[in-house]
Design a protein around this nucleic acid. Structure first.
Length: 510
RNA sequence: GCUCCCAUCGUCUAGUGGUUAGGACAUCAGGUUUUCAUCCUGAAAACAGGGGUUCAAUUCCCCUUGGGAGUACCA
């Protein structure tokens, strides 16, 4: 559809350091990355910090760390070096707009010389009053071009006398601006609806519109993939390219990510920052997989993608036009899928920080100790205990609570819980004793899940008991819970001694 | 208000003139089972409405409705 220019694909993300990276940003970043990699092109990071008042300390570091966390690599732009300081790489720098002021100065002069821009001395008060009047009359708020026809001499005089000014774009009158959106097709807007927008602010900093197109051009950006909220200002950008006599890049406007109320997801919706999702125990690959599917699909039934599969299959042709509601249920499901795909070791690596945080275990160099008693605890015990919960959690942050009985003897349960369904206290006590006796007969080396299960089933049968009558009390004795992994599995992890101790405690309790 | 964008199950989506409108999540009902989870099977669930075009419209066009975004010396 588009006039593919034959040069190498170069895309960029242009975040402004005004807050922490949120889900919407991450999706835009991801699509740009996938597009670049799919097309064997280059991916550039550029910081748009032209609004000094909104600058948030640490925002840039947060962005850079997020990129690193997500394993999203890029050819050009700022990065954190080994000391955690920001450096830049690439041949088209600087990649931070506040360091490019000279470049914008040069380019605004071009526009002024070509009579495509003009000085405006209107005060903010006047503009606000104007806007309010227009609103009252139900007219679209728009600059009244008060300074548009000031002569160069007049303007110069006012500048010399120290008047504050901005520089505005001289938007052509009654002209249809047409551009091809790679996702939406042709979009047409008449300049009647385009303001004489500001290019350079009072503080001499460029506005987004101006800096953005100058940089995209100078950095040889071929495709601009950005949020849908930019559609309305694309005609301004198009006009600017025309004024300079430059070829615009191909635009592709991505669908909005919506909240449950179908409004654009914003910080007001609570946990939308990427780091919140990370701290909530969502896996990187799961989150990325989910985000990728929010607005794109390969045209197949596939739901789970490796990074390579995403890169291979990603195409703008399959990006949706309509906004997509962020559905936590589906994220949870995908997260569960990824959790179950992990091997024991990786799963444990992800869980252990949560166990430490919950003060169940403490890391002591490369060893672990039980926080409660300080006794050493074997990594293989930790891994085997955790593995029993792997299919039972959908989020890593649930892990500490579900496995705590493995790491602490201080757990309480009601003795009534030991009694299975319609069984009685007496019968339970008897069953518990039978179980204990039976388990005691098993050799320590044979103390395996399958053996235990088999023996106990035989035991139940021989004593005219249901499976539940023997397994249920054992479950509660070992875990103190009504929902837990299989009792025989837990018994194996605990080992014979520990199992018998807990069984004895249960018998005494009841 | 004005401008622009959008419209298939509750949600994410497949579908590009002729399909029993497919899949996934969620929901519900079964199965497996000592609990929970996993796993398996099944059910319910959608083309916003109205006009055209056509032999034939979910699909193409128009209108209506609905939703969204933008409307700053913020990005």
């Amino acid at each position: 559809m588009e006039n593919i220019n034959l040069s190498k694909v170069r895309v960029r993300i242009a975040p402004s350091p005004t807050g922490f990276v949120h889900i919407g940003n991450l999706r835009t970043i991801l699509y740009n990355y996938l597009f670049a990699r799919h097309n064997k092109g280059e991916f550039i990071v550029r910081i748009e910090d032209t609004d000094q008042s909104r600058f948030v300390k640490g925002a840039m570091e947060d962005l850079l760390k997020t990129l690193e966390w997500a394993d999203i690599d890029y050819e050009e732009g700022p990065f954190l070096n080994a000391e955690g300081k920001i450096e830049e790489k690439g041949d088209y720098g600087p990649y931070t707009q506040s360091k490019r002021l000279d470049i914008y100065k040069k380019h605004i002069k071009t526009l002024l010389d070509k009579n495509k821009a003009y000085y405006c001395f209107c005060s903010k008060d006047r503009l606000e009053k104007l806007r309010n009047e227009q609103k009252e009359q139900k007219l679209p708020p728009k600059y009244d071009q008060h300074c548009r026809n000031l002569s160069k001499d007049e303007a110069q005089k006012m500048i010399n006398s120290g008047e504050e000014y901005v520089i505005r774009f001289k938007t052509p009158e009654n002209k249809d601006v047409i551009f091809e959106d790679a996702i939406r097709g042709t979009i047409k807007v008449n300049t009647h609806d385009v303001d004489d927008f500001v290019l350079v602010k009072t503080d001499k900093f460029p506005t987004y519109h101006f800096a953005n197109i100058v940089d995209d051009h100078l950095m040889k950006i071929t495709h601009v993939l950005r949020g849908e909220e930019w559609i309305a200002s694309t005609p301004k950008h198009q006009l600017l390219y025309e004024a300079f006599g430059w070829h615009p890049p191909i635009f592709a406007h991505l669908p909005t990510i919506l909240n449950k109320q179908k409004k654009k997801m914003s910080k007001r919706d609570g946990d939308v920052s990427v780091k919140d999702f990370i701290s909530q125990g969502y896996l990187k690959d799961a989150l990325l997989n989910f985000i990728t599917l929010l607005g794109w699909n390969a045209g197949t039934d596939q739901e789970i993608y490796t990074r390579d599969e995403m890169i291979k299959q990603f195409s703008l042709d399959n990006v949706h036009k309509a906004g997509a509601v962020f559905d936590l249920d589906k994220l949870d499901w995908i997260n569960g899928v990824y959790i179950r795909q992990l091997d024991d070791e990786k799963f444990a690596d992800l869980c252990i920080p949560y166990l430490c945080k919950a003060k169940l275990i403490t890391q002591d160099n490369d060893k672990y100790v039980k926080s409660e008693t300080g006794e050493n605890i074997d990594i293989s015990f930790i891994r085997r205990a955790l593995a029993l919960e792997q299919a039972r959690i959908k989020n890593i942050n649930e892990i500490a609570d579900t496995v705590k009985f493995f790491f602490s003897d201080k757990f309480k349960y009601s003795k009534d819980l030991l009694v299975w369904k319609k069984s009685t206290k007496e019968a339970t006590k008897k069953a518990l004793a039978l179980v204990m006796d039976e388990l005691n007969k098993i050799d320590e080396n044979q103390f395996k899940s399958e053996t235990i299960e088999e023996k106990l089933k035989m035991l139940a049968q021989n004593n005219n008991l249901g499976n539940g009558d023997v397994f249920w009390p054992l479950r509660v004795a070992l875990s103190g819970r009504e929902k837990s992994p299989g009792p025989h599995e837990m018994a194996e992890v605990f080992g014979k001694d520990k199992t018998l101790i807990r069984l004895k405690d249960a018998i005494l309790k009841i």
